[in-house]
Nucleic acid binder design. Sequence first.
DNA 1: ATGAAAGCGCTAACAT
DNA 2: ATGTTAGCGCTTTCAT
Lengths: 338, 338
Amino acid sequence: MSAAAGPRPVSIFDVAKRAGVSHQTVSRVINDAPQVAAATRAKVKDAIAELGYRPNRSARALAGGALKSVTVLTTDTSLYGTAETLRGIEDAARAAGFSVLVSVMDPDQAYSEADLLGRLPHDGAAAIVIAHDETTVRAMRALHERQPGATVATCGEHQEDRDADWLISLDDRTVAARATRYLLDMGHRQVHYLAIPGTAGRRTGWSDALAAAGITAPAAVESGWSVAAAAEAATALVADPAVTAILCGNDDLAFGVLHAAHRAGRAVPGDLSVIGFDDYPLAAYHVPPLTTVDLDFRGVGRGAFERLRAMLEGGPDPRPSWRSPELIVRETSGPPRQ
Amino acid sequence: MSAAAGPRPVSIFDVAKRAGVSHQTVSRVINDAPQVAAATRAKVKDAIAELGYRPNRSARALAGGALKSVTVLTTDTSLYGTAETLRGIEDAARAAGFSVLVSVMDPDQAYSEADLLGRLPHDGAAAIVIAHDETTVRAMRALHERQPGATVATCGEHQEDRDADWLISLDDRTVAARATRYLLDMGHRQVHYLAIPGTAGRRTGWSDALAAAGITAPAAVESGWSVAAAAEAATALVADPAVTAILCGNDDLAFGVLHAAHRAGRAVPGDLSVIGFDDYPLAAYHVPPLTTVDLDFRGVGRGAFERLRAMLEGGPDPRPSWRSPELIVRETSGPPRQ
DNA sequence: ATGAAAGCGCTAACAT
DNA sequence: ATGTTAGCGCTTTCAT
């Protein structure tokens, strides 16, 4: 699909001829090989500039060179967390000269290993999966099993793998516990949890904190991913005057709860405290500003890429460079009304 | 970066041997060439399945075959409109067997043509630019000039190009005028506009409607892209009791205005009507629900890809298949208080 | 309907 | 320090 027809693009041979050297020397120059005389290198670089030469990635890949690409697999690029993670990956990848491919999966479909591999540009191609639901979690496991040296994932759950070097995650469990305790400490007798599908970390942190306080956790209320689903799922919860505090799986759910609470005539935070997760840019400017948890998705994306690169190129394992989750208290949470 | 070492991936020759045919016949089968005996085709397909063969995209591209990839260029993949457009492109691209590359540009940087081309996997590679600011608009022009047969853009502004077949855009101008008139018809004497950087369509529609009503348009208030920037930029505006209606460049800005209005003690919609653009999923669940304009970004993304494909493969020009912008009246707009 | 030969642009090995 | 020779896996011709 080169389409844009036009004259044949300039190749390494054209450059070689122009510079009066062999094509191999040109190859050395564009790959920053050490043993090239400064004068030669300059000549070649001039020729490259004059001709507007650009290396052909396909030829490079085929010849056994580094392809330098990552494929990002996920189910929803519009979700805030996913979009930010993708952005972090892209930032780091670009800086390292990698190109990034995006492959969106259907959350409601079951993928065979062949389906998954078919999304990679070639066998053994590097992949990062942004995992947050059943489909992506399964994909991350399958891909890692098949090509452990070229697969990395970001994921907010599944503590069993937490320490695996190929799995980058934020400690949402600890901060969920902290948020729950914060609510309890203010005098709430009970904290409810509105859950996004599949996430175990936040849910576990929440029940941990409750258990530590000697409180029996109520059943978590299951919600879908959308604000609409949350508003719907939380209807009964917010209508119950005994419910004074709700921890939500993410900010979208929190907004849904706020909406439902408003409709039910419950004042926030007077009658009801609501806490989200993610700290959407909007959270601070919501009316009232949302108490939530800052999650550094972009940093995690960058970290995932760096880890992948270390795997691929055998460099030193990069130090984690993202912020730890942090509870940000704003105006949707407070002590219960006596 | 094939990394994941392992045994050499199976090639077309392995399949050929297994099926007892030449490698060329295998090539014909995987490319759905017509002149292959049904029996042969079946044999080959079996061999492919048994061996788990997957064609190597790089080799294909190099040999002059279709690369089937699109590079999406934009400045911010986290913006709602951009994320949705990207999603639409990805949907359509996947269905057509194309892979999609994402390349994020820095909005504050000036890019040379070489910089831009360097983001494509090879010379003449297909590209879609999601344009919404100076950087991306410039990129879209430069790329289109350089490779008119392989560049498409989505863009909400710049009417001069509106009818170009390579430029897909929504008619935000007309709907902006409609929204303004709606406000005027309810009795507002004046409508103010809080502008996102660079967009001409909405701004023009707004001033058109004002002019048509014989009203001199006030200076538009310039804002950045963020909710924070909008809240800041709108501070003076919302504080002015003479201001009763504000049209905002997008929903983020509208949320910023709502925040500022709340801080200034102005009731919405009693004292102040606010209208956004984009219809974020959250808009309907905001408290109060936001009056805004539905913009079918995902449809536009799909459309952009289809157009590109038609260019590339010379197919029939696809019919536009996205929804027209539509004003959605919710609860942040109403008649001015007498 | 099928096969054989050539070559895409590049890098890896081996020269020198 | 530089040049020469092979191929990477595939699609094109061009045969048969």
